[in-house]
């Protein structure tokens, strides 16, 4: 158990060689490789983190954009709804107005037709009544209707006497204008004379206070409007006989009947209109 000095020295040298060579071939490259790999891994982690951050930012941006778009869509929808409602209201109002104007026109037309119809009825009826009466009188009593009418008219002129005594004299001034007698038919000369005399006696009688004229001017006019009648006006009095009064009454009754009928029709029409409006425009 001795120490061999040469061996000891050689082993020291050997160990130093081992230290130097291991340092060169083992520790240095291994540590370097490890450091490099660590750096690489760190870089990769960093890169991954950066990418994650980027992706998150991108996602956030997309979310914001989508929210913005949603808001825009909502706004557009609201605007469109409001516009549609407004437009609907306007269209409904327009339609109502149109319907009302159509209704007015229709009513006006109906009224016009009614008036026209009544007028024609009146004319035709008067003529017919006149002809019937004329024929009937001729056949039954061999009398002229015109003559009978004139007779009734003269009688009325005489009958006014009683009324005149009670009626106030509206005008005391003598009237120089001729008294006009209107008739629906042509009056022959003898008839005219009779009427003239009757009027004159009438006037003379009325002006018995002394300022009565000696002669009365009488003018004759023919107007088909009177419908089978005759009339005159003087001293604020109107003396007449014609079918007008009868026809007026008849017309009134007919008009009432027509109006009632129209009201029924109108109600039915309104009901239909309302139903149509409810069907097309609910609520």
């Amino acid at each position: 158990m001795q120490i061999d000095w040469f061996t000891l020295f050689a082993q020291i040298v050997n160990f130093l060689i081992v230290v130097v060579l291991l340092r060169r071939f083992l520790y240095k490259p291994i540590l370097q490789a490890m450091a490099e790999r660590e750096a690489k891994i760190a870089a990769q982690f960093e890169e991954a983190e950066a990418k994650t951050r980027e992706a998150e930012e991108e996602a956030e941006r997309y979310r914001a954009q989508r929210a913005e778009l949603d808001e825009e869509i909502d706004a557009l929808m609201a605007e469109a709804t409001a516009k549609a409602a407004e437009r609907r209201k306007a269209m409904v109002a327009e339609a109502r107005e149109e319907v009302e104007s159509m209704q007015d026109r229709w009513y006006a037309a109906i009224e016009h037709e009614k008036q026209l119809f009544l007028h024609r009825i009146r004319q035709r009826l008067g003529q017919q009544v006149f002809h019937i009466a004329k024929s009937a009188l001729k056949d039954l009593a061999d009398a002229e209707l015109e003559g009978e009418i004139v007779d009734v008219f003269i009688q009325q002129l005489d009958a006014q006497e009683i009324e005149a005594s009670t009626a106030p004299a509206h005008s005391s001034e003598p009237d120089e204008t001729p008294i006009i007698v209107r008739s629906a038919f042509e009056l022959d000369a003898p008839t005219r004379q009779r009427i003239k005399q009757a009027i004159q006696s009438r006037v003379m009688h009325d002006r018995s206070d002394g300022n009565a004229p000696n002669t009365v001017e009488v003018a004759f006019e023919q107007t088909p409007d009177l419908i089978c009648g005759i009339e005159t006006q003087f001293e604020n009095r109107r003396i007449a006989w014609n079918l007008n009064d009868y026809l007026t009454r008849f017309e009134e009754e007919l008009s009432t009947a027509l109006t009632t009928e129209l009201h029924v029709e109108e109600r039915a029409h309104l009901y239909e209109q309302e139903a149509a409006a409810n069907g097309i425009l609910p609520g």
Binding site: Q2, I3, D4, T7, L8, A10, Q11, I12, N14, F15
Partner: peptide, 12 residues
Amino acid sequence: GSLSTTSALAVC
């Protein structure tokens, strides 16, 4: 197992 070697290392 040689004292020379272990001594050499100890000297180091």
